[in-house]
Protein backbone atom coordinates (compact mmCIF):
# COMPACT_ATOMS: atom_id res chain seq x y z
CA UNK A 1 0.00 0.00 0.00
CA UNK A 2 2.71 2.43 0.93
CA UNK A 3 4.67 3.65 -2.03
CA UNK A 4 8.36 4.23 -1.77
CA UNK A 5 10.66 6.66 -3.47
CA UNK A 6 8.27 9.50 -3.89
CA UNK A 7 5.22 7.65 -5.14
CA UNK A 8 1.97 9.53 -5.18
CA UNK A 9 -1.33 8.81 -3.54
CA UNK A 10 -4.42 10.22 -5.08
CA UNK A 11 -7.19 11.04 -2.67
CA UNK A 12 -9.19 8.16 -4.05
CA UNK A 13 -6.37 5.68 -3.55
CA UNK A 14 -5.89 6.95 -0.08
CA UNK A 15 -9.53 6.52 0.85
CA UNK A 16 -9.51 3.05 -0.59
CA UNK A 17 -6.34 2.22 1.26
CA UNK A 18 -7.45 3.30 4.69
CA UNK A 19 -10.83 1.72 4.24
CA UNK A 20 -12.93 4.59 5.48
CA UNK A 21 -15.15 3.35 8.24
CA UNK A 22 -12.73 0.46 8.61
CA UNK A 23 -11.46 1.63 11.95
CA UNK A 24 -8.62 3.54 13.44
CA UNK A 25 -6.18 0.66 13.41
CA UNK A 26 -5.78 0.61 9.65
CA UNK A 27 -5.72 4.37 9.56
CA UNK A 28 -2.99 4.70 12.17
CA UNK A 29 -1.06 1.72 10.95
CA UNK A 30 -0.79 2.76 7.36
CA UNK A 31 -0.55 6.50 7.42
CA UNK A 32 -0.29 8.00 10.82
CA UNK A 33 -2.84 10.13 12.45
CA UNK A 34 -1.99 13.52 11.02
CA UNK A 35 -1.94 12.63 7.40
CA UNK A 36 -5.14 10.66 7.58
CA UNK A 37 -7.23 13.52 8.82
CA UNK A 38 -5.50 15.79 6.42
CA UNK A 39 -5.93 13.59 3.40
CA UNK A 40 -9.63 13.28 4.04
CA UNK A 41 -10.07 17.04 4.06
CA UNK A 42 -10.24 17.19 0.28
CA UNK A 43 -7.85 20.11 -0.06
CA UNK A 44 -4.98 20.71 -2.43
CA UNK A 45 -1.93 18.47 -2.17
CA UNK A 46 1.51 18.59 -0.65
CA UNK A 47 4.32 16.06 -0.34
CA UNK A 48 5.53 15.03 3.07
CA UNK A 49 7.02 12.13 5.03
CA UNK A 50 4.42 9.73 6.39
CA UNK A 51 4.94 6.73 8.62
CA UNK A 52 3.60 3.20 8.39
CA UNK A 53 3.78 2.20 12.04
CA UNK A 54 3.15 -1.42 11.24
CA UNK A 55 6.30 -1.62 9.19
CA UNK A 56 8.57 0.38 11.47
CA UNK A 57 10.92 -1.92 13.40
CA UNK A 58 12.53 0.81 15.49
CA UNK A 59 15.99 0.37 13.94
CA UNK A 60 16.61 4.12 13.77
CA UNK A 61 18.35 4.00 10.40
CA UNK A 62 16.16 6.98 9.44
CA UNK A 63 17.77 9.05 12.18
CA UNK A 64 21.24 8.34 10.86
CA UNK A 65 20.24 9.04 7.26
CA UNK A 66 18.64 12.34 8.26
CA UNK A 67 21.63 13.40 10.29
CA UNK A 68 24.04 12.39 7.55
CA UNK A 69 22.33 14.75 5.10
CA UNK A 70 21.33 17.58 7.39
CA UNK A 71 24.50 17.67 9.46
CA UNK A 72 27.18 17.35 6.78
CA UNK A 73 30.87 17.07 7.57
CA UNK A 74 33.73 19.22 6.35
CA UNK A 75 36.44 16.83 5.20
CA UNK A 76 39.60 18.18 3.60
CA UNK A 77 37.82 21.35 2.51
CA UNK A 78 34.93 19.39 1.00
CA UNK A 79 31.44 19.12 2.35
CA UNK A 80 30.45 15.47 2.60
CA UNK A 81 27.48 13.68 4.14
CA UNK A 82 28.09 13.29 7.86
CA UNK A 83 28.56 10.10 9.84
CA UNK A 84 24.92 10.06 10.84
CA UNK A 85 25.03 10.94 14.53
CA UNK A 86 21.38 10.48 15.51
CA UNK A 87 21.67 13.30 18.05
CA UNK A 88 21.36 15.75 15.16
CA UNK A 89 18.51 13.99 13.36
CA UNK A 90 15.26 15.81 12.63
CA UNK A 91 13.37 12.55 12.73
CA UNK A 92 13.33 10.71 16.06
CA UNK A 93 12.22 7.17 16.72
CA UNK A 94 10.58 6.87 20.12
CA UNK A 95 10.76 3.36 21.63
CA UNK A 96 8.20 2.05 24.09
CA UNK A 97 7.50 -1.00 26.21
CA UNK A 98 5.80 -3.20 25.05
CA UNK A 99 7.44 -2.78 21.68
CA UNK A 100 6.02 0.13 19.77
CA UNK A 101 8.25 2.44 17.77
CA UNK A 102 7.05 5.82 16.68
CA UNK A 103 9.18 7.83 14.27
CA UNK A 104 8.39 11.45 14.99
CA UNK A 105 8.97 14.06 12.33
CA UNK A 106 7.68 17.57 11.64
CA UNK A 107 4.07 17.25 10.52
CA UNK A 108 4.22 20.50 8.56
CA UNK A 109 0.94 21.61 10.12
CA UNK A 110 -1.12 23.85 7.88
CA UNK A 111 -2.01 26.16 10.75
CA UNK A 112 1.59 26.37 12.06
CA UNK A 113 1.02 26.84 15.81
CA UNK A 114 4.83 26.97 16.14
CA UNK A 115 5.18 29.96 13.83
CA UNK A 116 2.18 31.68 15.39
CA UNK A 117 3.81 31.39 18.80
CA UNK A 118 6.93 33.23 17.63
CA UNK A 119 6.99 36.61 19.43
CA UNK A 120 9.40 38.27 16.96
CA UNK A 121 7.81 41.12 14.98
CA UNK A 122 7.05 40.07 11.39
CA UNK A 123 9.48 41.40 8.81
CA UNK A 124 8.11 44.37 6.83
CA UNK A 125 8.87 42.88 3.43
CA UNK A 126 8.37 39.15 3.86
CA UNK A 127 5.86 39.19 6.67
CA UNK A 128 7.88 36.46 8.34
CA UNK A 129 8.52 36.13 12.02
CA UNK A 130 11.87 34.61 13.05
CA UNK A 131 10.17 31.21 12.89
CA UNK A 132 8.25 30.81 9.65
CA UNK A 133 7.02 28.48 7.00
CA UNK A 134 8.56 28.44 3.57
CA UNK A 135 5.72 28.92 1.11
CA UNK A 136 7.22 26.76 -1.61
CA UNK A 137 8.27 23.66 0.32
CA UNK A 138 6.01 24.18 3.35
CA UNK A 139 8.94 23.27 5.57
CA UNK A 140 9.50 25.22 8.80
CA UNK A 141 12.54 27.46 9.18
CA UNK A 142 14.17 29.64 11.77
CA UNK A 143 15.94 32.90 11.01
CA UNK A 144 18.72 32.55 13.56
CA UNK A 145 19.73 36.21 13.25
CA UNK A 146 16.33 37.40 14.42
CA UNK A 147 15.48 34.52 16.75
CA UNK A 148 15.64 35.47 20.43
CA UNK A 149 15.85 31.86 21.61
CA UNK A 150 12.72 32.07 23.76
CA UNK A 151 11.56 28.52 22.92
CA UNK A 152 7.95 29.54 22.28
CA UNK A 153 7.81 27.58 19.00
CA UNK A 154 9.01 24.41 20.70
CA UNK A 155 6.56 24.86 23.54
CA UNK A 156 3.67 25.34 21.14
CA UNK A 157 4.70 22.27 19.16
CA UNK A 158 5.06 20.15 22.30
CA UNK A 159 1.77 21.20 23.84
CA UNK A 160 -0.32 21.18 20.67
CA UNK A 161 1.33 18.83 18.17
CA UNK A 162 4.19 16.36 17.71
CA UNK A 163 6.74 17.98 20.01
CA UNK A 164 9.43 17.50 17.41
CA UNK A 165 10.95 20.98 17.70
CA UNK A 166 13.74 21.17 20.24
CA UNK A 167 15.49 24.32 21.43
CA UNK A 168 19.26 24.08 21.15
CA UNK A 169 20.50 23.47 24.72
CA UNK A 170 22.95 26.38 24.46
CA UNK A 171 21.27 29.01 22.29
CA UNK A 172 17.62 28.12 22.89
CA UNK A 173 17.05 28.42 19.15
CA UNK A 174 14.78 25.82 17.56
CA UNK A 175 16.10 22.72 15.78
CA UNK A 176 14.77 19.48 14.33
CA UNK A 177 12.41 20.93 11.72
CA UNK A 178 12.22 18.57 8.75
CA UNK A 179 13.92 19.94 5.62
CA UNK A 180 12.56 17.23 3.31
CA UNK A 181 16.22 17.04 2.19
CA UNK A 182 15.44 19.33 -0.71
CA UNK A 183 12.77 16.98 -2.05
CA UNK A 184 14.67 13.71 -1.59
CA UNK A 185 14.10 12.71 2.05
CA UNK A 186 16.95 10.45 3.08
CA UNK A 187 14.96 8.78 5.85
CA UNK A 188 12.51 7.47 3.26
CA UNK A 189 15.28 6.41 0.94
CA UNK A 190 17.26 4.54 3.61
CA UNK A 191 14.51 2.86 5.61
CA UNK A 192 15.25 -0.86 5.26
CA UNK A 193 11.62 -1.77 5.83
CA UNK A 194 9.72 0.66 3.62
CA UNK A 195 8.05 2.16 6.67
CA UNK A 196 8.49 5.74 5.53
CA UNK A 197 7.02 7.27 2.40
CA UNK A 198 7.38 10.63 0.74
CA UNK A 199 3.95 10.94 -0.72
CA UNK A 200 1.60 13.54 -2.03
CA UNK A 201 -1.23 14.09 0.36
CA UNK A 202 -3.79 16.85 0.82
CA UNK A 203 -2.69 20.33 1.84
CA UNK A 204 -4.36 23.03 3.91
CA UNK A 205 -6.04 20.32 5.83
CA UNK A 206 -7.44 20.42 9.27
CA UNK A 207 -4.55 18.95 11.18
CA UNK A 208 -4.54 16.85 14.29
CA UNK A 209 -0.86 16.18 14.95
CA UNK A 210 -0.22 14.00 17.98
CA UNK A 211 2.85 13.41 20.11
CA UNK A 212 4.57 10.01 20.00
CA UNK A 213 3.27 9.00 23.44
CA UNK A 214 -0.33 9.29 22.34
CA UNK A 215 0.27 7.44 19.10
CA UNK A 216 2.18 4.70 20.91
CA UNK A 217 -0.56 4.32 23.51
CA UNK A 218 -3.12 3.83 20.77
CA UNK A 219 -0.95 1.33 18.91
CA UNK A 220 -0.14 -0.60 22.09
CA UNK A 221 -3.82 -0.89 22.87
CA UNK A 222 -4.53 -2.14 19.38
CA UNK A 223 -1.61 -4.54 19.10
CA UNK A 224 -1.19 -5.88 22.62
CA UNK A 225 -4.41 -4.88 24.34
CA UNK A 226 -2.45 -3.16 27.02
CA UNK A 227 -3.31 0.06 28.80
CA UNK A 228 -0.17 0.42 30.86
CA UNK A 229 3.02 0.88 28.92
CA UNK A 230 6.28 2.59 28.27
CA UNK A 231 6.72 4.55 31.48
CA UNK A 232 4.15 6.93 30.05
CA UNK A 233 1.16 7.74 32.18
Amino acid sequence: MTKENGGTFTRREFLKGVGVGGGALVLFGQFGIHSAAWALSGEATLKMVVVDYKKCTGCRTCETACSSRNKPAAVGGKELPGLGNPYFANIKVHNFNPDVDVPNVCAMCADTPCAKACPVEPDGKTGRRAFYRDDASHTMHNDASRCIGCGSCAKACASQRTGVIRPNPETGKPERMCTLCGGDPQCVKRCPFGALSYVEVRRDRKFYGLGPEKIAAELARNWYGTAEFGGVK
Binding site: K54, T57, G58, C59, D99, D101, P192, W223, Y224
Partner: peptide
Protein backbone atom coordinates in the same frame (compact mmCIF):
# COMPACT_ATOMS: atom_id res chain seq x y z
CA UNK B 1 2.21 -8.96 16.12
CA UNK B 2 5.24 -7.04 14.87
CA UNK B 3 8.91 -7.44 13.93
CA UNK B 4 11.58 -5.37 15.65
CA UNK B 5 15.19 -4.54 14.88
CA UNK B 6 18.23 -3.49 16.83
CA UNK B 7 20.20 -0.37 15.98
CA UNK B 8 20.52 0.10 12.20
CA UNK B 9 19.69 -3.52 11.52
CA UNK B 10 17.81 -4.46 8.32
CA UNK B 11 17.03 -7.98 9.60
CA UNK B 12 14.43 -7.39 12.36
CA UNK B 13 14.68 -10.84 13.96
CA UNK B 14 13.01 -9.76 17.21
CA UNK B 15 9.29 -10.47 17.52
CA UNK B 16 6.68 -9.17 19.88
Amino acid sequence: VRDFACYCCPLACKKS
